[in-house]
Computed example of a mutant assay.
Amino acid sequence: MAKKILIISSSPRKGGNSDLLCDEFMKGALEAGNDVEKIFLKDKTVHPCTGCSVCSMYGKPCPQKDDAAEIVEKMIAADVIVMATPVYFYTMCGQMKIMIDRCCARYTEISGKEFYFIIAAAENDKAMMERTVDGFRGFLDCLDGAEEKGVVYGIGAWKVGEIKNTPYMREACEMGRRV
């Protein structure tokens, strides 16, 4: 049975290393017959959470008028969510963290989802990437029934496109096929 897959790419550049890994994951998922949509956060306007508490104290929608509500709605509708980030200073980039924070108003509705994480970093030590993945896992700890299904550690790629000549591209494609 086909799954509805949402890929959230937080790369600041189209064709960046983490974004290329997203494309490979998508390629594999489409080959397996799934319904896939990729959101490139740079093309969206997502403001930081203001901490106004309208969503938590009053149960009302976030008052900010940007693209976050649309993205959260797609997260709620998806069966599978892929979150991809370049690694900056051993953690996820700010664009991804802001998007996670904006899930606050409706995070209880993002339940029963399968999650995959894609990271790309210049660092060659996979163990050093666990801090980044732990940030994603902290988000999942707040979601009912969230299940981590896989991580692509795209390490050793600094310049744009360096990820192309690594086994991580094939790994991302294969992971997409297995969804």
Rank of each mutant, 00 (worst) to 15 (best):
A2M: 11
K4E: 11
K4Y: 11
K4L: 06
S10I: 03
S10T: 05
P12C: 03
K14V: 15
G15C: 09
G16N: 01
G16Q: 01
N17Y: 01
N17A: 04
S18H: 06
L20G: 07
D23L: 14
F25D: 04
K27P: 11
G28W: 00
E31Y: 08
A32Q: 01
A32D: 00
D35L: 08
V36F: 05
I39M: 15
F40Y: 15
D43R: 09
K44C: 12
H47L: 14
T50Y: 14
T50L: 15
M57D: 11
M57P: 10
Y58F: 14
Y58K: 11
K60I: 08
K65R: 11
D66A: 08
D66K: 06
D67H: 02
A69N: 09
A69L: 09
E70Y: 12
V72R: 02
E73W: 13
M75Q: 01
A77Q: 15
A78K: 01
V80K: 03
V80C: 10
P86S: 02
V87D: 02
T91K: 12
I98V: 15
M99E: 10
R102W: 03
A105T: 10
E109F: 04
K113E: 00
Y116V: 03
I118K: 14
A120R: 07
A121V: 14
A122I: 13
M128F: 00
M128E: 00
E130C: 02
R131E: 10
D134N: 07
G135Y: 15
G138M: 13
D141Y: 13
D144M: 14
D144C: 12
G145K: 09
G145H: 10
G150V: 06
G150L: 03
V152R: 01
V152L: 10
G156M: 05
A157K: 07
Y168Q: 09
R177F: 03
